[in-house]
């Protein structure tokens, strides 16, 4: 479903050139629960950004659901993101003026769904992430774990092709982080949603069904794991 071929990305910051990705090739199938692991600076975020169509590669190719996104224009990439990709960020990134409910339903409003459908789907996903009764709280009135649950609900409510999560538990204590991962894996198992998340935490890697280790912009190892 996702084919990454010989992906290169270099950051030029004045005099210094950082080769963040130096030829990544991999295949990701539908329904995978994949962890991209590696030390700081190994290129995890860069890879997720490229797969998520919010950054452009220098060379190489990404084919996403049949679309060669590496050849597409920014305008087309927005549409792909809107329809097919859900993001979960390390620091939640909820909109502070919106309630939990509104943060989630915004995604569906963007797709132009009918009000009744938006309501049904939003309430269902909020129940799923265990936030029933907290729909009308603003992010400031939610704990970190609860905020990340809203973020996961926001990413999943549109039933995306892939969910990209860059260090989703890095800002949470380990117990809360684990519960988030458990929840994500449950969704992956029941709905078959593809998850790609990055981490450098071994506890988090343990949840992965496939672990891909990066080092210095190259794949160091790539292995399937049994639960």
């Amino acid at each position: 479903m996702i084919t990454v071929t010989d992906l290169h990305k270099e950051y030029i910051d004045g005099e210094s050139h950082v080769r963040a990705l130096r030829g990544i090739t991999m295949q990701i199938d539908k329904g995978e629960f994949l962890s991209i692991a590696g030390p700081s600076g190994s290129g995890k975020t860069t890879l997720l950004n490229l797969i998520g169509c919010i950054d452009t590669a220098d060379s190489g190719e990404i084919i996403l659901d049949g679309d060669t996104v590496t050849r597409k224009h920014a305008r087309e990439l927005v549409e792909i993101r809107r329809g097919k990709i859900g993001f979960v960020f390390q620091d939640f990134n909820l909109i502070p003026v919106l309630t939990a409910y509104e943060n989630v339903s915004l995604t569906l409003s963007l797709m132009g769904l009918k009000e009744t459908e938006i309501k049904a789907r939003t309430m269902a996903i909020l129940r799923e992430v265990g936030l029933e009764g907290m729909e009308h709280r603003r992010p400031a009135k939610l704990s970190g774990g609860q905020q990340q649950r809203v973020a996961v609900a926001r990413a999943l409510v549109k039933q995306p092709l892939i969910v990209l999560a860059d260090e989703p538990t890095a800002n949470l204590d380990s117990a809360t982080g684990e519960s988030i991962l458990q929840m994500m894996r449950g969704m992956n198992e029941r709905w078959g949603t593809t998850f790609i998340f990055s981490t450098h935490d071994t506890m988090v890697m343990d949840y992965a069904r496939r672990l891909c280790r990066l080092h210095d912009g190259l794949i160091e190892s790539d292995e399937k794991r049994s639960a």
């Binding site: 998520g52 919010i54 927005v78 549409e79 792909i80 993101r81 809107r82 329809g83 990709i85 993001f87 960020f89 990134n93 909109i95 502070p96 915004l106 995604t107 963007l110 926001r154």
Partner: peptide, 14 residues
């Protein structure tokens, strides 16, 4: 700025 970045990542058009 971050909020704008997040919205754009979500697929909100410029």
């Amino acid at each position: 700025e971050r909020e704008i970045g997040m919205l754009r990542a979500m697929g909100v058009r410029n």
